[in-house]
C-alpha cells in the first residue's frame, strides 16, 4: 500500500472538481473494499477524495412517483434498517443484511456497494495472470480452482463473479442509479449499470471517469407482500454467496401477476432473465412452475471443473426461494434456506 494525498470534499461538485484536477484520484466513502485492495497492492491512488463528509445524499427519501431514493452515502446498515426500506422494500433490507457483517454494513455505503470488486482468488493474487487486473494476461481461474466462479455470462477472458448481495435485490427491483460527473448528471437503469466481462473484463460497470453515484431510486412496487432473499454459502454468515436469489412476486387471485428473480454469485453482474419472469406470469405458483422458470434462467449456464454444481444448485435455490417468497415470514437470519 502506497501513501497518497488526501482531500476531504464538502460537496459532490467539489469532489468531482478534485478528481479532475488531481492525477489518479480515487473516491473513498466506506472504504471497506478500497482499503482492502490497497493493502493487497491491487490498486493504488495518488489522491484519495473522501466523500464521507458530504452532507447531501445521506437520506432515504420518498419520491413523488411513490418510489424511494436511497442516498448513495448512507450506510448499508442504516438503509437496511430504515423503516421505509423495511416496510416497503423488505427484499432489499434482507439482501443487505445477508451481506458482510454488522460492522462492515455500518461503514459501507450504498454507492460503494455497487462498486465492489470480485473476490476471485486469482484477481486477489497479484502474482498470477488475471485479465481483470491486467488485461491481456489471461484468466487463471478457468483452469484453476474455480468452485466459487461464475456459470452464466462467462467467456474465455473472465469467469469472476460480482460479490454484492444488495445489488441482487436492486436488480430484482429495477432500481435506477443516479450519478454525477464532470459531464453532468445522468441516470442508469440497474440492468445497464454492471457489465459482463466481454472483451473488457477489467471494467465492472459503466461508470465514467470522475462520476460519483449520488443515489439509487427504487420504483414504487417493492414486492413487499411476497419476497425472499436466499443466500447459499460455505458458512452461515460472513461469506460470499455460492448462489443467491432475490425473488419478488406479485400475486392476484392465486396467480402470479408479475415476478422478479435475480441471481447472485453466478455471474459478473446480478443475473436477470426476462423470459423466465414472463413465463411465470399468470401461472399458479408451484414447485414445478418455479422449476421450469429456473430451467429457463439457467439454460445458458456453463460449468467449469469445480463449479458445475452451481447450475443445479441455482435451479433448486430459485425454486426454494420462490416458495419462501410465498411465505416470507419463514425467512431466517442470515438468509439461509428455510421452510
Amino acid at each position: 500500500m502506497n501513501n497518497f494525498d488526501y482531500f476531504r470534499a464538502a460537496s459532490v461538485q467539489e469532489a468531482i472538481g478534485l478528481s479532475v484536477e488531481e492525477d489518479d484520484a480515487k473516491y473513498i466513502a466506506g472504504g471497506t473494499n478500497l482499503i482492502d485492495l490497497m493493502k493487497y497492492n491491487l490498486t493504488d491512488a495518488h489522491t484519495l477524495v473522501d466523500l464521507t463528509k458530504i452532507r447531501d445524499h445521506h437520506e432515504i427519501q420518498e419520491l413523488p412517483d411513490g418510489g424511494l431514493r436511497l442516498g448513495a452515502f448512507e450506510t448499508n446498515a442504516k438503509t437496511a434498517w430504515h423503516p421505509l426500506v423495511e416496510g416497503r422494500y423488505p427484499l432489499l433490507s434482507r439482501a443487505i443484511l445477508a451481506g458482510a457483517t454488522a460492522q462492515i454494513r455500518n461503514m459501507a455505503t450504498n454507492g460503494g456497494n455497487l462498486l465492489q470488486k470480485t473476490r476471485c482468488y486469482y484477481f486477489y493474487d497479484a502474482n498470477v495472470p488475471c485479465n481483470k487486473r491486467e488485461p491481456g494476461s489471461g484468466c487463471s481461474a478457468i483452469g484453476g480452482y474455480n468452485r466459487i466462479m461464475a456459470i452464466l455470462g462467462t467467456n474465455e477472458h473472465c469467469i469472476a463473479v460480482f460479490p454484492s448481495d444488495m445489488c441482487v435485490a436492486l436488480a430484482a427491483l429495477d432500481a435506477v442509479v443516479n450519478v454525477e460527473g464532470p459531464q453532468g448528471a445522468r441516470s442508469i437503469p440497474f440492468a445497464d449499470f454492471h457489465r459482463l466481462p466481454g472483451n473488457t473484463p477489467q471494467l465492472d460497470n459503466n461508470l465514467q471517469e470522475g462520476e460519483i453515484i449520488t443515489g439509487i431510486d427504487l420504483p414504487a412496487n417493492g414486492y413487499a407482500q411476497n419476497y425472499s432473499y436466499l443466500k447459499i454459502r460455505d458458512r452461515n454468515s460472513y461469506a460470499f454467496a455460492l448462489v443467491s436469489v432475490a425473488t419478488g412476486l406479485k400475486l392476484e387471485d392465486g396467480h402470479i401477476q408479475s415476478a422478479r428473480i435475480a441471481l447472485g454469485g453466478v455471474a459478473h453482474k446480478p443475473w436477470r432473465d426476462e423470459a423466465a419472469e414472463n413465463f411465470l406470469k399468470e401461472k399458479e405458483p408451484s414447485v414445478p412452475v418455479f422449476r421450469e422458470a429456473a430451467e429457463i434462467m439457467l439454460a445458458g449456464a456453463v460449468g467449469y471443473e469445480h463449479n458445475a454444481f452451481k447450475i443445479e444448485l441455482a435451479k433448486r435455490a430459485i425454486v426454494r426461494n420462490c416458495m419462501m417468497a410465498l411465505n416470507p415470514e419463514t425467512q431466517v437470519p442470515g438468509a439461509g434456506p428455510s421452510l
Partner: peptide, 16 residues
C-alpha cells in the same frame, strides 16, 4: 495456497 485469508479460509462463525 489460494485462500490465504480469513475471508475465504472458512473457520466457523457464531451462526454456525
Amino acid at each position: 495456497y489460494m485462500n490465504q485469508n480469513l475471508g475465504e479460509y472458512h473457520i466457523p462463525v457464531h451462526a454456525d
